[in-house]
Design a protein around this nucleic acid. Sequence first.
DNA 1: CCAGACGTTGTT
DNA 2: GTCTGG
DNA 3: CCAGACGTTGTT
DNA 4: GTCTGG
Length: 171
Amino acid sequence: MCGRYFRRSDKQKIAEAFHVKQVVDFPLPPWDYNVAPQTMQPIIRANRDTGERELVQLRWGLVPFSTKSLADLKGKSTINARAETITRGWWAQPFKKRRCLVPASGFYEWTHDDPKNKRPFAFDLANGKPMGFAGLWDAWKNPTDGSWLQTYTIITTDANELMTIVKWNKA
DNA sequence: CCAGACGTTGTT
DNA sequence: GTCTGG
DNA sequence: CCAGACGTTGTT
DNA sequence: GTCTGG
């Protein structure tokens, strides 16, 4: 679940909906109907110093702190973490100390019945309100150049009654 | 998650 | 960092 | 003990 | 088939 999602709220609306105290200055389109892994996206986390909620930009696809080389992640996917496993392994540290909220309006799922005819379906909250995926984030220092990379993952769980197939409003 | 690329030599 | 397999 | 992995989805 | 970029 959740390899791609969409966002209808701008920074202002996100800040209001999630009671954000500090909004970092980065450009953000008022909507994005194709939020893809490996791109920079807004997330909400506790500020390191004040503990207050801040809206910042991180890259989707968690690179664990202990990663020695990005090549180690080749062939693995860290865009999602199962709720059942986040207390162990790579996720343990982020789960303890680095949780976040990922503002969104809904997400996509694809049918694979016919491989030649993949079809996307969109889901959002039945009440149409902004939603926040539960997420984890981490910071990784690139040993090559010493730069820091901050990333996040979205926690997945079973299908439930909160989500419904999107009824797109016409104009 | 999907879509699209996936190579080399040697030239300007 | 932490867990598993050997 | 050390070495090496550490993931997800969805399909068969 | 598998990897990368978005």
